[in-house]
């Protein structure tokens, strides 16, 4: 059977399993690896991981369905996740959803027809002092305004990245003395 993992990924697997005294503990890291490879965790990937860790496919499936970050079907290239928890809701989460809709025309749960953007609402992302905020793929974007949102989505579409992504986090930021 051919593997769904690329050669480079396959080479990382033994090292990941070796971090734990019991193979099963490598489940979450291997699911992450699969998602990195395909953008989601396919049933083929779940079966293959079950084989690698001496688990049954249902043991893998029951874990996958417990954690919200594993996608079980392909999604847009850029996954926009807007925090909806109270702290962000107090400072304009609803506006943020409107700005995103104005810009790319999608509501929560939808993907743009070109397959670029998928919009989700998620729970607290630990960015409560800098809301409203969103995570797009790996990056956080905070203290959002409509202008910033427009720029971020333009940049992502054009360049695949945006310099407005938050670096190592500190807030309030240091002010020059």
């Amino acid at each position: 059977m051919s593997s769904m993992f690329s050669k480079a990924a396959q080479e990382r697997i033994p090292g990941i399993i070796a971090r734990y005294p019991e193979k099963r503990a490598a489940l979450l890291p291997l699911l992450w690896l699969a998602q990195e490879e395909q953008g989601y965790v396919s049933e083929e990937a779940m079966k293959e991981i079950a084989g690698l860790l001496n688990l049954t496919p249902p043991q893998v499936y029951e874990a996958v369905t417990f954690y919200t970050m594993y996608n079980r079907r392909p999604i847009g290239k850029y996954h926009i996740q807007v925090c909806r928890s109270l702290m962000c809701a107090l400072v304009g989460m609803e506006n943020l959803l409107g700005w995103i809709h104005d810009k790319v025309g999608i509501k929560v749960g939808q993907t743009t027809p070109d397959g670029l953007f998928t919009l989700s609402q998620v729970e607290c992302l630990a960015s409560c002092g800098t809301g409203p905020m969103m995570q797009v793929n790996d990056d956080y974007y905070e203290r959002l305004t409509q202008d910033k949102v427009n720029r971020i989505l333009d940049d992502l579409k054009r360049d695949g990245k945006c310099p407005l992504a938050t670096g190592p986090f500190m807030f309030p930021e240091l002010t020059a003395k």
Partner: peptide, 11 residues
Amino acid sequence: ESEPGTFKDRQ
């Protein structure tokens, strides 16, 4: 760190 309102460990 997932308790809504908390963002210190991240920093």
